[in-house]
């Protein structure tokens, strides 16, 4: 399970440019998160698990898809850790894998309604696919 783990930790660090070691475990990110109710791993847990090298577990986490990238955690973190940037890095690691896509062009029509702005679709493709 732990083989190639260092590689994953390094990749997360490289993509995010974030150092999870600066976290002091205050939980202000989790306190600020508007998507907390929908997440299986709260933002502070996420940071803590990156620090512990548990990237594989994080790649299975539903939090990746629930994060709103609203940067409330980034704004309020007293240590400059940027939890949402870390989450984004792990999400990128998932969708960059073979079969990592979470959305395909085929399912788009049924997700659409009359008023949906183009921006929503572009965002969705950015979040869910390469």
């Amino acid at each position: 399970m732990h083989q190639n783990n260092n590689y994953l930790v390094e990749t997360a660090a490289q993509i995010s440019g974030v150092n999870p070691k600066s976290c002091m475990k205050c939980g202000k990110c989790t306190a600020s998160c508007p998507a907390f109710d929908d997440m299986d791993l709260s933002p502070h847990m996420f940071v803590s698990m990156v620090e512990a090298g548990r990237i594989r577990e994080l790649m299975e986490s539903t939090s990746l898809w629930k994060c709103l990238s609203c940067f409330a955690c980034v704004e309020r973190c007293p240590r400059g850790v940027e939890p949402s940037t870390l989450m984004e890095a792990v999400r990128l690691m998932v969708i960059r894998k073979q079969g990592g896509h979470r959305i395909s062009a085929d399912e788009i029509p049924e997700l659409l309604d009359k008023r949906i702005p183009q921006q929503a679709l572009t965002s969705a493709f950015r979040k869910y696919s390469r």
Partner: peptide, 19 residues
């Protein structure tokens, strides 16, 4: 054990949202 993210004024009181 946790931090406050935001204080929200609500109905004349203060809702302290923390973790």
């Amino acid at each position: 054990k946790g931090m406050v993210g935001k204080v929200v004024p609500e109905k004349g009181r203060l809702l302290v949202r923390g973790s």
